[in-house]
């Protein structure tokens, strides 16, 4: 009998909350990065591949250097490189960002699996946890509240981005480019330059999200590590209406959904495990259906996005 099963329904709730806090971090980073990219008027569907590359390179670098944080940093750089590659390809004439994204998604995933073969066995130093549950003596609560500094960083980053988009030169330029390329050109901004920077930055954040996967939770490197989280994070951006603060809520919701299966299993509900495991995917579908309509465009969508044209 596990600790969770003794607590019954409360146990499930605590496990779901704990799961949400843990699982949501990569969602949060990827969706914040994608929000930036999409605000510039481009969609990067390749973030799933970026996530995998980040996870692989972060794990590898942590293993080689002995410093997990250095691994996180390098994962960010690798992610930025992937973002810049996406941007460079998209800046060619008649290249579609969705198609490039799908190509990079497959390329990144494949490359990470190929390069990551030797990383499956060894154990790399992982990121430290912050025991926020120290005040409680319920073990389930303690383990649920073991969170990572990256989550705090992500949650702090969201309002910072929100503020920056509204109140800084770069934020205003980014939104202009994403909303009306014509207006941006008339004002003398380089549309392609801004989009390249935004995609690179988006890739950087997604790479960090990947490093979280391999260096904290689940905390190992394997081929099925990201299981579509990068793609779902793109959906999440739509659900969050391109608003960084909403990304926090959306990421927590998705994280909680992902944690539902394991939490129920821990509580002793073993039937329909795979059905509960599918919760985030079902949630993605439902959200997509809810947010689409034949009659109107998505509210808040940057006008330059291929999906809102």
């Amino acid at each position: 009998m596990t600790a969770a099963s003794e607590l019954g329904a409360w146990g499930v709730l605590i496990a779901v909350i704990g799961g949400a806090l843990r699982v949501s971090t990569p969602y949060l980073f990827v969706s914040l990065g994608e929000t930036l990219t999409e605000k510039s008027g481009r969609v990067n569907l390749g973030l799933e591949g970026t996530l995998m590359m980040g996870a692989m390179s972060g794990y590898g670098v942590s293993l080689a250097s002995g410093s997990a944080w250095f691994g996180v940093f390098v994962a960010g750089l690798v992610g930025a490189a992937f973002g810049l590659l996406h941007a460079a390809l998209c800046s060619l004439p008649r290249v579609n960002d969705i198609a490039v994204g799908i190509a990079l998604f497959i390329f990144g995933t494949g490359l990470a699996i190929y390069l990551g073969k030797p990383l499956i066995e060894p154990v790399a130093p992982s990121l430290p946890a912050i025991p926020l549950g120290f005040w409680s003596d319920v073990p389930a609560l303690r383990s649920a509240l073991e969170i990572n500094a990256l989550l705090i960083l992500g949650i702090a980053l969201a309002p910072l981005l929100h503020w920056g988009l509204a109140n800084t030169r770069w934020g205003l330029i980014l939104r202009t480019v994403g909303d009306s390329a014509d207006a941006a050109r008339a004002l003398g901004f380089s549309v392609n330059g801004v989009r390249t920077a935004a995609t690179g930055l988006g890739g950087f954040l997604a790479g960090i999200g990947g490093a979280f996967l391999s260096l904290f939770y689940p905390g190992t490197w394997n081929e099925g590590l990201s299981s579509g989280q990068g793609l779902m994070a793109v959906t999440l951006v739509i659900f969050a209406r391109w608003e960084p603060i909403n990304c926090i809520y959306a990421a927590l919701l998705f994280g909680g959904a992902s944690a539902l299966g394991p939490a129920l299993q821990a509580a002793g509900v073993t039937g329909n495990y795979y059905l509960y495991g599918a919760a985030p995917y079902i949630l993605t579908l439902l959200l997509l259906i809810r947010s689409s309509s034949t009659r109107h465009r998505l509210r808040g969508a940057p006008s330059e996005l291929t999906i809102s044209k």
Binding site: T176, A183, A186, P302, S303
Partner: peptide, 12 residues
Amino acid sequence: LVYQHFTLVPNM
């Protein structure tokens, strides 16, 4: 220049 087509940013 005030353009024939608007160059205002629509969602701002």
